[in-house]
Nucleic acid binder design. Structure first.
Length: 255
DNA sequence: ATGGTGGGGAACCCA
C-alpha cells in the first residue's frame, strides 16, 4: 500500500500537477491539503477519470482537505469533538481497512500570537481525536501538512530557525504527544540523515537555494511501521512550472 | 528589522 500527502496550495491551480503525479506515482491513497475551494466546484470528474475515488471538505479561499484513493473512502469525518471550527483542516476516512486521518495543521504565524495559541489548542484537540480513532480502528495513518519540523535534522538552518514558528519546542512537544500514542514518523523509520525537505518558501528563491523544512509527515502506527518498505520525498513536482511550495511525501507499506 | 513570492479575490489576508 502506497500512501502519499501533498499540500497543493490551491487545487484549482495545481489540478494538472496532481493528475500528472497520480499518473506516474500511482499511490493507493493521496491526501491533499490547501485545496482552497468549496465542495460545489471540486474537480470530481477529472479525478475519477484518473482512476481515483475522492472525498473532500473544503471552504472558500483558505484551507480545504481531500482524500483520493483507488478504493472508495468510507466512514468520513470532517469535524471532531470540542472543536467547533469553520476552518476545513480535518478529514478522516477508511480506505481498505486503514483509517486515514488527513490534517492541515494550523500554521501559527509566530510564537506568542493568538494564532500560535490556536495552533496548540487545535493540536491538543486533534490529538484527543487521534487517540479516540486509535481505539476504534486498529490500523491508522495520520498524514498531512503538520507545519512542524520534528527536529533540527528537518531544518536547513537550525540556528536561524531556533524557536521560530514551525520549529518551537512547544510545537515539537505537541507532535511528540501524537507520536506517543503509538505512531512512527515513517520517513524517520528508514532515514536518519538531515537535509530532506518537503517545503521551501516561494520567497528569496528558497527552493533553488535549498532553504527548506520537512513539515509534511506520514505517521503510521507502530505495527504498520514494521511493514514500511520505502519512505521518501518526491521533489520533482517542486521543479515543475508554477509549483506548489510543498512537494509530495510518500510511504510504501507491505500491507 | 524588514521583506521577499504566490494564491485568493478584488483591498488585504494568509502562508
Amino acid at each position: 500500500m502506497k500512501i502519499a500527502s501533498w499540500n497543493v496550495n490551491s487545487l484549482k491551480v495545481r489540478l494538472d500537477h496532481v493528475l500528472q503525479w497520480l499518473d506516474t506515482a500511482q499511490p493507493d491513497v493521496l491526501a491533499l491539503q490547501e485545496t482552497k475551494m468549496t465542495d460545489d466546484v471540486f474537480p470530481l470528474e477529472a479525478i475519477r477519470q484518473a482512476g481515483y475515488q475522492v472525498v473532500f471538505s473544503g471552504q472558500k479561499t483558505y484551507n480545504g482537505v481531500a482524500i483520493l484513493a483507488k478504493s472508495q473512502p468510507e466512514d468520513v469525518i470532517t469535524d471532531i469533538p470540542d472543536l467547533d471550527d469553520p476552518q476545513r483542516r480535518i478529514l478522516a476516512a477508511t480506505v481498505d481497512d486503514v483509517r486515514i486521518i488527513d490534517l492541515y495543521v494550523v500554521n501559527g504565524s509566530a510564537p506568542g500570537t493568538e494564532k500560535f495559541a490556536y495552533k496548540l489548542d487545535w493540536l491538543n484537540k486533534v490529538t484527543a481525536f487521534i487517540e479516540q480513532q486509535k481505539t476504534e480502528y486498529e490500523d491508522v495513518v495520520v498524514l498531512g501538512d503538520f507545519n512542524i519540523a520534528p527536529d533540527d535534522r528537518d531544518v536547513h538552518d537550525p540556528v536561524k530557525w531556533h524557536e521560530k514558528i514551525l520549529c518551537t519546542t512547544e510545537e515539537r512537544q505537541a507532535l511528540n504527544r501524537i507520536l506517543d500514542l503509538g505512531f512512527q514518523d515513517s520517513f524517520r523509520y528508514l532515514h536518519d540523515e538531515d537535509g530532506f525537505f518537503s517545503w521551501w518558501d516561494y520567497r528569496m528563491n528558497g527552493f533553488a537555494r535549498g532553504l527548506g523544512l520537512r513539515i509534511d509527515l506520514i505517521l503510521s502506527t507502530d505495527e504498520m511501521s514494521e511493514a514500511i518498505t520505502a519512505s521518501y520525498i518526491d521533489v520533482e513536482p517542486r521543479k515543475w512550472e508554477r509549483p506548489s511550495d510543498h512537494t509530495p511525501v510518500v510511504t510504501e507499506f507491505d500491507w
